[in-house]
């Protein structure tokens, strides 16, 4: 029997008249890197806040590390490391002061706290910024300080809300390296909410959310494999004029992605050859690929996951 660190059953949440979550159930194995994937407004941040004990649990049950969320939130908080979308640092304090303040709040004695801060500053390569005022750091550095802050007390479960929002690709890669490192080093379970494909693909298990409901779950590979066929992406010289002709030719509906048309087809290479034969001169470029998580989401909900990759929720 697998060892679940988090089990949620039938969780629903309402803000006034708005149903943010309805009947969400999930299980997370210890040591897993688990992703909550969904577009803005899918309820993933609400779920995150419920798990972080910041919102009252209205309906359903949640147990984390064997504690009941409703009645034992204090014990649960001890197990949690939480990293928010906007870093929860005091911008007027230095990096070290922020970490020390947070460590004291978590009840870590000053001796062990000092060496723990040293370790984490080194682990995340921010030791040279120890005395910098937090508000003057770049977004990537602040995010790493925030992560260090969340790990001070050796949490068994680390919650990350949209961790790479506002980070450039290099900072994003460093941040994810740090998370993988932590996961392997201490066996920390990591739960991350995201609306970004690249982040979701880093996860071992995914739960897709849409409009507060679970769409599907599984590993990224399982989810992609659950779709038959391939993805054929074609760029034409005169897309708008030829779209309907191409659709009826391939007998498949297309989805525009930028200036290209994206088809889900069963025999992509055959269809590609037929298209080239028929439309030859009109085709600027064509690509055959396995379905992505984006396709999985589209298939299950009929909606695109994210129009704007940098959109903030």
């Amino acid at each position: 029997m697998p060892d679940f660190i988090l089990q949620a059953n039938g969780v629903s949440h309402q803000y006034g008249q708005t149903q943010a979550l309805s009947d969400v159930s999930l299980q997370i194995r210890a040591g897993c890197l688990f992703g909550l994937l969904g577009p803005n407004g899918s309820g993933k941040t609400t779920l995150f806040r419920l798990l972080a004990t910041l919102l009252p649990l209205q309906t359903g049950t949640v147990s984390i590390a064997g504690f009941d969320l409703k009645n034992q939130s204090s014990q649960i908080r001890r197990q949690l490391g939480v990293t928010f979308q906007s870093p929860a640092l005091d911008n007027r304090l230095t990096v070290q002061e922020n970490l020390r303040c947070h460590g004291r709040i978590y009840g870590i004695a000053s001796g062990p706290l000092k060496s723990r801060i040293d370790d984490l500053l080194n682990q995340f390569a921010i030791a040279d910024r120890r005395h910098s005022i937090a508000g003057e750091l770049s977004g990537g550095l602040r995010r790493r300080v925030e992560l260090a802050k969340g790990l001070l007390h050796h949490p068994t479960l680390l919650l990350l809300d949209e961790p790479s929002t506002g980070l450039d690709p290099a900072a994003r890669r460093q941040f994810w390296d740090a998370i993988h490192d932590q996961q392997h080093r201490e066996g920390t379970t990591v739960v991350v909410t995201t609306h970004l494909m690249e982040e979701a693909e880093c996860c071992e298990q995914l739960l897709l959310l849409d409009k507060g409901k679970v769409v599907c779950e599984g590993s990224p590979q399982e989810l992609q494999a659950s779709l038959n066929g391939d993805r054929l992406t074609i760029r034409l010289r005169r897309t708008s004029e030829l779209r309907t002709r191409l659709e009826s030719f391939l007998n498949a509906e297309s989805r525009p992605v930028g200036d290209r048309l994206c088809f889900r087809v069963n025999n992509a290479s055959g269809d590609l050859q037929r298209t080239m034969a028929e439309f030859g001169d009109e085709v600027v470029s064509a690509e055959v690929a396995r379905p992505t998580l984006e396709d999985v989401f589209l298939e299950k909900t009929g909606r695109v996951l994210s129009d704007d990759h940098e959109a903030k929720s």
């Binding site: 910041l54 908080r77 949690l80 928010f84 906007s86 929860a88």
Partner: peptide
């Protein structure tokens, strides 16, 4: 400001009695 800047939710998620 603490709430807007996010500092407060970090404290609220910590295992301290609320009176702290």
């Amino acid at each position: 400001e603490d709430r807007r800047e996010g500092f407060l939710q970090g404290v609220l998620a910590a295992p301290v009695p609320r009176s702290v």
